[in-house]
């Protein structure tokens, strides 16, 4: 059942988790909605670089968020705005602001690109944290695949309660593809909805790590090997250490 990513683990890893990692890296290397496969893999590489840099800790400890300057060393693969997004979201996510997100859009990054990059960063953070937690090294980044971004914009995408546009469950159309497990999907599920393919790629992988949407509000049961209160204690402590108020 093992693939390259878990073959050296001292632990027996459930098959759906192994498959989720394999599928996620395949998605990351493939052209998305706004980014080519090459740029998507570059985002993954920069996410790792940001995480390991001394300036990451420095950024978190700085009295003022954003005061640590970030240099773009991607040799043109990523723009300054993209590098800024990656480093700030990786290193100091709890101190982002709407003003900052608007400033990034003002630097020339489209809202679609911004959302797709957030999805990629979040995927890489989950994948690499999971392998780290299981005692493994980062998997080699995949070779980017040739392809053309679709540039699909959901017609129902608009500014709602979040800083970036989202698609409310009632505003989805058939062309968007599957989006939500139910019309009452929580706001966190709507976060990436301005780029439906990114939303699908992200949740297909994330649900296997946490719990699928249909079980999230069933507080009296767990489909994992730890109980629901145990899961939520981990979730709450990790979120708090990231200064996440959500």
């Amino acid at each position: 059942m093992s693939t390259v990513s878990f073959k050296n683990s001292a632990f027996e890893v459930r098959e759906d988790l192994v498959d989720a990692h394999k599928g996620a890296w395949e998605c990351i290397s493939t052209a998305g909605t706004w980014l080519t496969g090459e740029r998507r893999v570059a985002v993954a590489a920069e996410t790792r670089k940001a995480r390991e840099r001394a300036s990451c800790a420095e950024a978190r400890e700085a009295l003022s968020p954003g005061s640590v300057k970030i240099s773009n060393t991607t040799l043109g693969l990523l723009t300054d705005a993209e590098v800024e997004v990656i480093h700030r979201v990786v290193c100091d996510p709890g101190r982002l602001s709407e003003l900052w997100s608007q400033s990034i859009i003002g630097m020339g990054l489209s809202e679609g690109e911004y959302v797709e990059i957030i999805g990629l960063i979040s995927m890489v953070m989950i994948l690499d944290t999971c392998t780290l937690g299981l005692g493994l090294s980062d998997l080699d980044l995949p070779e980017p695949k040739i392809g053309v971004p679709t540039q699909y914009v959901p017609p129902g995408s608009k500014k709602n309660a979040a800083w970036l546009p989202t698609v409310e469950p009632g505003d989805t159309v058939e062309e968007d593809g599957p989006m939500y497990p139910s019309p009452k999907a929580g706001y966190i599920l709507r976060g990436l909805s301005a780029v439906p393919q990114t939303l699908r790629d992200y949740w297909a992988m994330a649900n296997i790590h946490y719990t699928p949407g249909q079980f999230v509000y069933q507080f009296d049961r767990s489909i994992r090997a730890i109980t629901r209160p145990q899961m939520e204690l981990i979730a709450a402590r990790v979120s708090a250490l990231h200064q996440c108020a959500y």
Binding site: I126, G191, A235, S239
Partner: peptide, 19 residues
């Protein structure tokens, strides 16, 4: 480990999208 990992992604979506 998987649950702890998942919340390294959820927090970034919530905070970067401004949920």
């Amino acid at each position: 480990v998987a649950v702890a990992s998942a919340f390294h992604g959820f927090v970034r979506i919530a905070d970067a999208i401004g949920i």
